[in-house]
Amino acid sequence: MPLTLTLAKALNAGLRASMEADPKVVVMGEDVGKLGGVFRITDGLQADFGEDRVIDTPLAESAIIGTAIGLAMRGFRPVCEIQFDGFVYPAFDQIVTQLAKMHYRTQGRVRLPVTVRIPFGGGIGAVEHHSESPEAYFCHTAGLKVVACSNPTDAHMMIRQAVAADDPVIFFEPKRRYWDKADVETGAPLSAATPLHVSRVVRTGDDATLVAYGPMVRTCLNAAEAMAVEGRELEVIDLRTLSPLDLSPVLASVRRTGRLVVVHEAPSNVSLSAEIAARVTEAAFYSLEAPVLRVTGYDTPYPPSRLEEHYLPDVDRVLDAVDRSFQY
């Protein structure tokens, strides 16, 4: 019997299921205990699993990841919360230098099944450092897996899959979609879920392809609905997995539609959309009717929140890019 849950509650239920399934799972981060996290994603977990398994940490992100690595070396399965996207940089060294490389360094002897949860993206009227999209930094680093959920149903299963995974996973949560609601099967076995590193078509169409992840998936679905009124059907693909990329559904779609627009909040310079454009051009060059186009945040620092509606891709900017694609 599915429950109707917000994305935040779906993640909470996923973490609870992970902790029930494996006593080695520990949750750690700033304010994750009594408060339940600033977004309440870990709400109630400390009351039920105790302070040894849900750990309120000192305010030191490098240490959150560094000690999680040590816990994993001892056989634990830590789930770290980085409170906001812009706070991950003090932990960047431990993530890139240690978390990503220790399995390789030790020729497979050490496994680090650490999940790093990061609420990301803008649109909530926040102050500086609370609205960023740093996913490309992590995708660039071999040894890490990077995923982003876009809806409650996926969020629930994907967090359980990430926690159960044997590699380190950077798990991006679309913070402005935390309050979106959908049906979630909290009791579903992991084996029934779409594999974590598989991208998925979330709306079919034959005229052009939109690719997005995280908060921009809903934006793209809205754009596709608007376009349908004009009689053109856009196919929308939710990447879900950012590293490794799963471009097979993208390539299959582009081979039909001949047109691709990639959408994300992160700036465009050396971004995921750049990588996707390069790979699609290489693999499906003769299918393309137009160059791969990108709709992204601008190449500036994230602006003050009174400007963010101008910075963030929206339906109009997506449709404008689709129109430009059709003009070729």
């Binding site: 240490a63 990841i65 560094g66 000690t67 040590g70 816990l71 994993a72 070396m73 001892r74």
Partner: peptide, 10 residues
């Protein structure tokens, strides 16, 4: 030093 501390917490 952080890995050691985490290991000891384990």
């Amino acid at each position: 030093t952080l890995h050691a501390t985490g290991y000891a917490m384990g």
